[in-house]
Simulated assay, not measured.
Amino acid sequence: MVAIEVPDSYGYVVLTAGVLPAVTNFLLSGKVMAARKQYDVKYPNLYAVPGYHKNADEFNRVQRGHQHMLENLSDFRFVSFIGGMMHPVTCAVSGVLYCAGSYLYMMGYSDNKLDVKTARLKKGGPILMLGLMVNLVCAAKYAVSLIK
């Protein structure tokens, strides 16, 4: 049997890459459920259909904000768990940035007063990408250290 030793602070990585994204996802899912009710978008439709749903764009912006987190969550978690083996505190802080940025991204994306590009950049997009990229670099650094 092979044993893997984890750093003392690795629990923070588990919290910010395992638990916190799940809580963030629940929060974002709740916003989508509220938007479904508000804009009358029934299942099984993932998105509202323009021309059929009166407020298709408004609902789709909320749904898209949530979907963005789901699209890169597995990559974020993977690089966090790996990078945290060498840099647990850095990866934990980046995990908080990723989750906060994901929440802010959705809030910006669903802000109908802003055009989509401005909303993504103004509210959260750079923050979540910073969290993801820092952990990607940490994972790459750890991977290179394992090559003999």
Rank of each mutant, 00 (worst) to 15 (best):
T90G: 05
K31S: 13
P88K: 05
S110K: 00
A22F: 08
A56P: 05
L97F: 08
N60D: 15
V134L: 14
G18W: 05
A100D: 02
M86P: 01
P21T: 09
N60M: 09
T24C: 02
P21Q: 10
N112C: 06
L20V: 10
G124P: 08
V14K: 05
G65M: 03
A92D: 09
M1H: 14
K148E: 11
N135Q: 14
V79P: 02
I4Y: 12
I4D: 07
S110E: 07
L128G: 03
V23N: 09
H68D: 11
V6C: 12
V13I: 03
S9T: 06
A34K: 07
P88G: 11
V13W: 01
S74K: 10
D75H: 15
H68G: 14
V19M: 10
K42E: 03
L27D: 00
I127Q: 04
F59W: 07
H66I: 09
R64K: 04
L73A: 04
S29V: 15
S102I: 02
F81I: 13
M107D: 11
T24P: 03
S80M: 06
K123A: 03
V32L: 00
G51T: 15
G95R: 01
I82Y: 00
L136K: 09
V79H: 00
K54M: 10
V144D: 03
L15D: 15
A22P: 00
V41M: 07
K37C: 06
P44F: 09
H53A: 09
I82T: 04
A119T: 02
